[in-house]
Design a protein around this nucleic acid. Sequence first.
DNA 1: GATGAAAGGGCATCGCT
DNA 2: AGCGATGCCCTTTCATC
Lengths: 147, 147
Amino acid sequence: MAEPLDATDHEILNLLREDGRRTLADIAGRVTLSTAAVKRRIDRLRETGVITGFTVQVDHAKLGWGIEAFTEIRFFGTTNVAEILQTTTRMPETQAVFTIAGDPDALVWLRVRDMAHLQKLVDEIRASHRVTSTKTLMVLDSWMRGK
Amino acid sequence: MAEPLDATDHEILNLLREDGRRTLADIAGRVTLSTAAVKRRIDRLRETGVITGFTVQVDHAKLGWGIEAFTEIRFFGTTNVAEILQTTTRMPETQAVFTIAGDPDALVWLRVRDMAHLQKLVDEIRASHRVTSTKTLMVLDSWMRGK
DNA sequence: GATGAAAGGGCATCGCT
DNA sequence: AGCGATGCCCTTTCATC
């Protein structure tokens, strides 16, 4: 496996968490290294899989997806985990899916336009036959690290 | 308020979701625009608050934070929502916090090193509020949009 | 094995049309 | 919105500790 990260690697990661488009020169100045050294470290973090990518952060409410909800899903006794992942991850409204040890069996984080939209999605999930029950939690407010 | 986004804006957002460090030249080629035009659109998306920032995506397991959990929290009748946000968002292990309409009252998404670490956090949450009960869900596997 | 310095090619940025 | 010039940044190479 890869070697453990030193303090400078963690500094670089934190700087990139704050702003993923920071320039190498900017980072280099803050961690007291040359741009070449910073680039090598970032390249290494990508190669070892610590950094999986870079992305843009979006205010979903401004795009008209103002409602967030979690849907708890329960299956019959022995259900393949891959099945629920396949159904839910296909839906563009799905933000994340968590398979759970215990009760419920899975937790799906959804972003929708309105209640009718939400109902349609929950119906879709329920229609995947092995589901015994769902319970949907409406999100009033959410906070996320790095926003 | 700002004007609605057209199809090109959505294309640009999707390209940046895939790779937040994509160059303007690359984006311009894919949406059939000049780099200057793409830059103006991205600047406008930032000014109107649609784009809130850029960040790096990290494999937390490789950093030694291999365990994910959700903790459901229930309060006494009249508890201030801001209170739970204050405590939980201060913890570096907190990935996200959702306040919920109904039961439970809040959902906290945690990333921890091990079970002892998790127990310490749940104890902290229980100690710092007028919490009536918590229930912690262990995450077996997670999928997230854009990974 | 990792670093800093320097060169080149590419890219972002800005003014103009 | 496109075009073009300027300056910055990324990237690679090479020498050093």
